[in-house]
Design a protein around this nucleic acid. Structure first.
Length: 301
DNA sequence: CCCCACATCTCGGAGACCTA
DNA sequence: TAGGTCTCCGAGATGTGGGG
């Protein structure tokens, strides 16, 4: 059975001459795309692509089929545009406010499908601290925002949950501990510390204060979580950040649990004044479909 | 309408092959 | 030898159709 994604994949492979990048474009994994193409070729009973050394090329028969696939997708886009216009979704604007780490880690993957689905709706990104985001939602500057630990009464779409971890250089004595054994705030009080805020009031400094610990050796304060991780790698000190913001390929750094554990969750909420607006409804409807279908696989941020 | 069995799809991991 | 690309395989998720 072939679905719309299969046809989009076919056209993407023809455009990009690369199965991996075509898979990314249509939101599949590379292996899934490879199998889907093989399946389509089997279904149609003819090879559509030639697998060459560094790329894939369209066969003569494939050219004919892909041309028809383009026509078909074009017709589908026209149908969708008509449906959007009919529902008042042909044009509009959503101002989306978020703190920086969500902008860089979560929102690109999340909003791509919406942009493709509703090209007439403009998405305006507003970057600020978590305090600013809340204020923009209240005064109507933004229609939608990413909130930390959003209250259930705001019916948030939960985007993820992340554990706060301690990063230490591999050469540091604490690096000999197991991850689970972890490190307490008290043990960090006199360590050279790299304070990262991520643009949030919820950060290592506020969390240590809540734990009743004063960090005596703050060497540097940075805005970006990833920068703090790099500074740890350089041996400037230790840092405490949400695990999901730690670069996955960071060598030379050990990650330990913070004891007792602290978690942060974050979700997308609507501004009170925007509830009921059609573009916002369309965005939430699409995202709820995504997250309800796979709540256990919500992306990390 | 619900449940169950079967078919299909998608994913991650492993491995083969090739190039720089 | 490392890195990039593709295929194959097993497992889990999802969709579909039939029976009660």
């Amino acid at each position: 059975m072939m679905n719309l994604t299969h046809w989009q994949l076919l056209v993407a492979v023809a455009d990009l001459a690369n199965i991996t990048r075509a898979a990314e474009r249509v939101g599949m994994t590379q292996s899934g795309a490879s199998q889907a193409i093989a399946q389509m070729e089997a279904h149609l009973g003819m090879p559509l692509f030639r697998r060459e050394r560094r790329h894939v090329a369209v066969t003569e028969l494939g050219e004919h089929i892909i041309a028809q696939a383009r026509d078909m997708l074009g017709a589908w886009e026209a149908i969708r545009a008509f449906a959007d216009e009919n529902q008042g979704l042909g044009h509009g604007r959503i101002r989306l406010a978020s703190f920086p780490s969500a902008f860089s880690h979560v929102l690109p993957d999340l909003l791509g499908p919406f942009r493709r689905r509703h090209p007439g709706i403009e998405l305006v990104m507003l970057e600020g601290s978590d305090v600013e985001v809340e204020s923009w939602l209240e005064d109507g500057t933004a229609e939608v925002g990413v909130m930390l630990n959003p209250p259930p009464e705001r019916s948030p779409i939960m985007l993820g949950r992340s554990e706060w971890v301690v990063l230490v250089p591999n050469a540091h004595p604490l690096a000999r501990r197991s991850r689970q054994q972890g490190v307490s705030w008290a043990e960090l009080a006199d360590e050279p510390f790299i304070a990262a805020t991520g643009g949030c009031r919820n950060n290592a400094l506020s969390l240590s204060a809540q734990a009743g610990v004063f960090l005596n050796q703050i060497r540097v304060t940075v805005h970006d979580w990833a920068s703090a991780a790099v500074l740890v790698k350089e041996g400037l000190g230790v840092a405490v950040l949400p695990e999901s913001t730690v670069p996955v390929d960071l060598a030379g750094v050990r990650m330990l649990a913070l004891q007792p554990g602290i978690f942060r969750s974050y979700g997308l909420v609507q501004a009170p004044a925007a509830v009921g607006a059609k573009p916002v409804q369309a965005l939430f409807s699409m995202l709820r479909g995504t997250f309800n279908a796979a709540t256990s696989t919500a992306p990390r941020a």
